[in-house]
Design a protein around this nucleic acid. Structure first.
Length: 580
RNA sequence: GUCCCCGUAGUUCAAUGGAUAGAACUGCAGCCUUCUAAGCUGCUGAUGUAGGUUCGAUCCCUACCGGGGACACCA
């Protein structure tokens, strides 16, 4: 049990005695005091007022008296306008919490959950162009999702489905046929994804003048699907180029998959699932021959799952994939599909169908959807070339970080500079993208995003390295008592540490119950902790104070802060360099 | 037309129905002979409109106004 819930439980016990019954409803009501002068933690007593038919403040007063008996936990308690404000003992706030942090180390805050297997599906690019900022939001969320699920005890299978089939690829191919003149990424010294993307943009500009190109591209798609050897060869060549390019970017970002499926491999297998669904009357054949799922009873439309001519569409592929995954993982608990919010309707339809097909894990699967990343000038459009390219953005961030590093560390070897710069660049990017609530659209401001000052990833990394540089100057044992800590700044830090397991638990519960993955809360938590840590060591000295007890108490506190902050950042897939 | 999401400071973002709505950027004024100035301190500034529920609403409900997205035999 975490310290947070231990404290909460001791308060609830008193309340239960007071009301002579279970007070489960109060679990989760305890909060950190908004003003440290009022106390450390606080419990609103308004809900109790109705049950006990007394004024909230009267109840708070009664509770304050009773709870004061808990001398191990409660230093003092008082009623403030209906709130029960509690100041914790230094033992409860510092000794107990820090002991738990030191004992559990990187497992601090890890909840005890039954284990399960989850697939996290993310990235899943189209193979006609390089990755852009929208993919980066996806990837960063996906990786945080993997880290988080692992942390709370699940077995995670990172997976992607590569959309290598469809008209978008044939557009690039057509443009390449017409204007490529046999050029290759090697000859033009371009990454394959950028090389092919160039032809996609070229197609889009040419088609404005020559609308017939659209039909030509359709024609190529038909040829491909009917197995034309030459077109298949060319299609494969373009796909290989793009995938090779994208893998380079993946590599840089640490993106790895245990399962990778190609739409071109599986889309035909969806027919088996469709046949199965027809047998069980989940699907039916419409007059025109198309196979449909009628979902009108749950407020969704009639959905075609197989064309009249028997060919597959987008959702057929998803059905195939569901079946494949079901076979591969008999114990599957659920799938997290990290996909942009535009596809919300698609997933509502898909989950409804999967539920009807009686996949047990369908009800535990969720569409982790996130809003668009827009530019100050409006929406990004691949076709118009107004996208923020992932590689270029990372390079830009890297260059800025590198300059900052060489300004500070003149003698650092080049390899170390590069490694640090990359860590800092990625932290900047990751925090920028994770700090926003997922379902919100966000605006990407080029200026702000490359800034390394203020509420940024590098700020968080800096905080950890700076704490560590204080700590490394002296190695100390954990003190017996923390009674010497008397500053508000110290209490604020400890309260964050106390709260961390609670934050993890809340995100985890939300994921279970409402299928929302609220990782931005953790990003915000990290930021608040870092801000308070910076304020603390700016105002108070750690090592060069006279009182040795104070030195060791503060040393221990900062050790725990560094540990929890690094842990919280690692759940956000943010690494911290040794020095900054 | 139907459905979903969003309107918070000049800007970008926070705030499980709780107390004085927090940060960051921008601007101005300070702090490096003192554990890393990618830092800290201070000042200015905001809940789209109208109702409702509630002891209490940025949060829940209704209507309206504004912005975005979806509703393919596209992917």
């Amino acid at each position: 049990m975490t310290q947070w819930s231990t404290i909460e439980k001791s308060i609830i016990e008193e309340i239960e005695e007071l009301v002579q019954s279970k007070a489960d409803c109060l679990s989760g009501e305890m909060v950190v005091c908004p003003n440290p002068l009022w106390g450390d933690v606080s419990l609103p007593c308004f809900a109790l007022a109705k049950i006990l038919k007394k004024s909230p403040d009267e109840i708070a007063k009664t509770l304050a008296e009773k709870i004061s008996d808990h001398v191990a936990v409660v230093l003092s308690a008082r009623a403030d306008g209906g709130f029960l404000n509690i100041t914790l003992t230094n033992k409860a706030l510092f000794a107990d919490v820090l002991t738990e942090v030191f004992e559990k180390k990187e497992e601090y805050g890890k909840p005890q959950h039954p284990l399960g297997t989850y697939i996290v599906e993310y990235a899943s690019p189209n193979t006609n162009k390089p990755l852009h900022l929208g993919h980066l939001r996806n990837i960063v969320i996906g990786q945080a999702g993997i880290q988080f699920l692992k942390f709370i005890g699940h077995t995670v299978v990172p997976a992607e489905i590569i959309n290598d089939r469809g008209i978008h690829i044939m557009k690039s191919l057509l443009a390449y046929q017409k204007w490529g003149e046999g050029d290759t990424p090697e000859k033009s010294k371009m990454k394959g994804d950028h090389f092919v993307g160039k032809y996609y943009v070229l197609f889009s500009s040419k088609v404005k003048e020559q609308p017939e190109l659209d039909e030509e591209a359709q024609g190529l798609l038909k040829k491909l699907e009917s197995g034309d050897k030459e077109i298949t060869k060319q299609w494969k060549q373009l796909n290989d180029w793009v995938i090779a390019g994208i893998k380079e970017t993946y590599n840089r970002l640490g993106v790895e998959f245990e399962e990778e499926d190609f739409e071109s491999d599986i889309y035909k297998q969806g027919k088996e699932v469709v046949d199965l669904g027809k047998e069980t009357k989940i699907f039916s054949e419409r007059e025109d021959g198309a196979v449909i799922a009628n979902l009108e009873d749950v407020g969704l439309d009639e959905k075609v799952v197989l064309r009249a001519d028997g060919t597959a569409i987008y959702i057929t592929q998803d059905l195939a994939l569901a079946q494949l995954r079901n076979e591969r993982h008999p114990e599957l608990n659920g799938i997290l599909h990290v996909v942009a919010r535009e596809q919300e309707y698609h997933f509502r339809v898909l989950f409804e169908i999967l539920k009807r097909l009686e996949y047990s894990w369908a009800s535990k699967s969720s569409h982790v959807s996130y809003g668009l990343v827009n530019l100050p000038s409006g929406r990004m459009k691949s076709r118009e070339g107004t996208v923020v390219d992932a590689d270029a953005l990372l390079d830009e961030l890297h260059a800025i970080a590198e300059k900052e590093i060489t300004d500070r560390w003149e003698d650092l070897p080049a390899a170390a500079v590069t490694e640090r710069a990359e860590m800092i660049a990625q932290a900047a990017l990751r925090f920028y993208l994770l700090r926003v609530t997922l379902h919100q659209d966000m605006i990407y401001d080029p200026e702000e995003s490359i800034s390394l000052d203020g509420a940024t990833g590098p700020y968080l990394q800096y905080t950890v390295t700076r704490i560590k540089s204080i700590l490394e100057k002296k190695s100390l044992e954990q003190p017996d008592s923390y009674d010497i800590l008397k500053e508000i700044e110290e209490r604020k830090l400890a309260l964050h540490l106390l709260r961390f397991p609670h934050v993890v638990e809340m995100i985890s519960e939300q994921l279970q119950e409402s299928k929302q993955f609220n990782i931005s809360v953790l990003a915000q938590f990290s930021l608040e902790l870092a801000q308070d840590a910076n304020s603390f060591y700016q105002k108070h000295r750690v090592l060069d104070v006279k009182d040795k007890e104070l030195v060791s108490a503060r040393h221990a506190l900062l050790t725990a802060v560094a540990s929890v902050l690094s842990g919280s950042l690692s759940l956000c897939s943010i690494e911290v360099p040794e020095k900054m």
